[in-house]
Amino acid sequence: MTLGADVGIFLVSIAAGVVGALAGVGGGILIVPALTLLFGIDIRLAIGASIVSVIATSSGAAAAYVRDRLTDMRVGMFLELATTTGAVVGALLAAIVAPGLLYILLGMVLLGSAGMQVVRLGEEVPPDVEPSGLAARLRLVSSYPDARLGREVPYAARRVPLGFALMWGAGVVSGLLGIGSGALKVVAMDGAMRLPMKVSSATSNFMIGVTAAASAGIYLARGDVDPTLVAPVALGVLAGATLGARLLPRLSNRHVRWVFLPVLVVIGIQTLLRGLGVGL
């Protein structure tokens, strides 16, 4: 790798870190196509690097989000129960399920949820509701300080069983396909559980590192993670995620939706294409 290529990868990784931190995803959507198409890197090593970028985005951004009370740690830990058990089931199913069909299915789910995101583009905070008994027992009722609105915004998780089931599905998908599935996590928290958008994004960011760490061992053992390639990626993503995490509190929930929607569409199309055999 030349120094020029390293600088290029570093700059792309900064962008991936910023977008990932804002949208609650791992930045693989930028890293994988940039590494393969712009820098001619083998798809296997590009995916290995993107797993590392997911962890870098997650830890880099969550350090700020946890402190700023944007991440809901109880929602995150409760739903990690779903994603980690789902991931184990997914890893066990990997030998018997054809990934092609699954990518196509997941792509359609993501594009379908993009349609539902359009409806909510103008929504700043979800409507007030009485917390369900289950949400209250699990303490999934809280508030976050909104620097943009200049007030504390209360919220309560709705449709907890549906959210848990969607997260379990996201975990199965992660285990089967080895992806962080941050987009699906944001959709589950924002769309199903109706948490505020910034809380959904920040909590997804908090969670995706754990999902990725669970499968990172497999990638390391396979030799898919090349530290000489990962070095500029990790440094760039960490810088970008730190920057993005400073930006998020100042944005409105509507702004975050405008960042998330195109990300969701691009991930949906990439996933569909991968299912049709076009690696991006």
Binding site: I55, S59, E80, G209, A212, A216, P227
Partner: peptide, 19 residues
């Protein structure tokens, strides 16, 4: 290369330590 590898391992261990 060893420093890059060590950095990578610390990064991968961070979410586990967080849990």
């Amino acid at each position: 290369i060893a420093f890059a590898q060590a950095g990578l391992l610390v990064l991968l261990a961070t979410p586990v330590l967080r849990v």
